[in-house]
Design a protein around this nucleic acid. Structure first.
Lengths: 213, 213, 213, 213
DNA sequence: CAATAAACGAGACGGTACGTCGAGTCTTCCT
DNA sequence: AGGAAGACTCGACGTACCGTCTCGTTTATTG
């Protein structure tokens, strides 16, 4: 295919609306991410996958890390909403047990890839927390509030802390310890960690009641 | 100091014994690591810091990640032994509350830096687990066993799981959420997470008793 | 002035007649050319200077080089007519000694800038010769013919060759050798090169009489 | 061919002496230059042609223009010495009539390519004059001195000026006017320009005797 | 105690990806 | 309708770092 033909095809597929183009690029980034992981993802690859140019990528995102943060935050195909199954246990399972399919495992894989960059670049870390984590925390908070209403999280137990347990343990077991995160394992974590913490009845002398973070 | 003088000094201080030289290089790596973090650490920097050549580094370690794994695993100045304060709470505090000094915070910072590489390189991940994690797990297991003897970890509760909670939460809060890990916070995690999990009396139907990982 | 105000002003001053607009753009190109030279001139700069869009530039000229050729050929403010001072020496001085002012030095500077492009693009070279050089050669020929009538160019001496000497030497000394082309130097070239060649009395066996080029 | 095999081959062909490597790269640059001209020459192309990396090119030369200047200045295969045929006419012919073969026409082609860059970058212009022009001027000066001893350049005529005529006219006719520089044409220039200027007997009132440049 | 082999410091190198810039093309919106 | 605005693709630029390699020297081990 000659450059001219490529340009022609690009012109045909180029969306009219800038936001659509952005979404297309983010989707391409997600595809590359799923294929090769964060480290081996290159900007040229993303550009080629999106039939875009590197200049366009850098017009919208100031670095590879920024692009990836946005990609996993806003790309379609990644779940945005918290489940509501009627029990805390069910909600957690619904959220954390799709890990076998590639899309769901993506965030864990990519988060670990980003951690390194986050240490080196505070701006990026902030972007990651605001664009990726905060929207999800907002969603999860609803799960936590419903659980408290049902009595699944005892009074005096920090909801945020309860909801943070599973992500923290999953990334630790998955990435650091290299464990396969199958359904049985997630269930064990829920039963042996989340539930005991959420239903803690003992009242330690210090700290209880204050929100963490 | 001119390059020539540096070389002269290096020649003078060059150790006769290979193992000492290796330790010197690992220490240099730790110093650079503490200064700039995993990402911004370059092999040239380490070589310069150790008055060594890159070739020497690659003679001993096959990659940057391998070197760093070894550096945080074996460098002197990093604590190797588990504490024994007489209580689980005290042991945990002793291990996790030195974070204000640079050496103790190092593993967390570097672990996050390595996560990316671990995903891309299984061999590295294995090396990290075997050289860094396993020795520490062996040490910590003693802490866990003493705690069980004292009744601080209930029967039927997985010791490994209990001991994994704090590292998992610390790296999550510290790296992912960007939280300052001060002493008060570590205490809260111990009181509100570790203790409830360790003393869980309820007996869930499934999974309890099997060891995790 | 905000971009909006600029746009408003541009709208107000936008000419109704295409040729005027073209001339405005060419003038803008000349201004940019004088400021930064051929290499550092960018189409965006010209567009901004002319309050035009790049698309408009490419509607009229197929490339940067084409635009520049046209700019130095047709822009107002650049002398179009050959002088007539009554002597060859005077005409040459009049034409080549305005070099201190920016406009006159422009062609030399730009010609050198275009040389590279001319080698790569025959179409451009042709355009440059036809649009820029030929009109000036036509003018200069009158100078030459008047000089021959006055006996300043001997019979058997190629007029074109005589008139080519000064441009060739000026561009060589100015661009290649980096010499300042002040009035005294131009006078030396006229006295020591142009005049001897024009008044050559010796009759070489070959070639004399044929026109060069 | 795998990267490993490529590396192995590179190791085999890599010269032991740095200067040899430099010469190899310069030769590669000359080959690319002859193939595609200055404008279309890219650093990647030169790197590929020399089995080198771009980084290596930039270690030795700070820009494309610097590399090309060095290439045409020092590459083997380009004549360095002035001829000595016994007559000024013969020496000039020997130097300027090899233009049909690609190597000899290279300097003219490349000089024009460099002119643009020279205007934008004074450092480059200086480098070009010092590394390329000055060595050749030194050589040519011998030609001029021999010519003066033989009486081919009259007393009071600037030798430098005489020797500059042909390069100036050749580049002007060749590049600007697009003329084919065949042997007959060079002879005409010598007979009708160089000889009259060199043998000028008339003594203009000003300037004669001082050296130009 | 000299000869030899191994290991080393120094640093150039090939390769790959980065982030930037300018040319020339295209669409949208405005007048 | 036609132009201004400006996003877009393409391709080259110059930079940084990794891991490999060579060179000449120093250090330890043998004959």
């Amino acid at each position: 295919m000659t450059p001219g033909e490529l340009a022609a095809k690009a012109a045909l597929t180029r969306p009219r609306i800038a936001d659509e183009r952005e979404a297309e690029i983010l989707d391409a980034a997600v595809r590359v991410l799923a294929k090769v992981g964060y480290d081996r993802l290159t900007m040229d690859q993303v550009a080629a996958e999106a039939h875009a140019s590197k200049a366009s990528l850098y017009r919208h995102w100031s670095s590879k890390a920024e692009l990836v943060v946005d990609a996993i935050s806003k790309a379609k195909g990644l779940p945005q909403k918290a489940p509501n199954t009627g029990s805390l246990r069910g909600d957690l399972m619904a959220t954390w047990c799709g890990h076998q399919n590639s899309h769901q495992s993506l965030p864990v894989s990519v988060t670990s890839g980003l951690m390194s960059a986050m240490h080196a670049d505070d701006e990026l870390a902030t972007a990651f927390r605001e664009r990726f984590l905060n929207p999800r925390r907002t969603e999860w908070r609803k799960v936590g509030e419903r659980a408290r209403e049902r009595g699944e999280i005892a009074d005096g137990v920090d909801i945020e802390l309860v909801l943070t347990l599973l992500p923290a343990l999953c990334s630790h077991y998955g990435v650091v310890l290299g464990k396969q995160l199958d359904q049985a394992f997630i269930e064990r974590l829920i039963d042996e960690v989340v539930v005991p913490v959420a239903q803690r009845t003992s009242s330690p002398e210090r700290g209880s009641g204050e929100a963490i973070s």
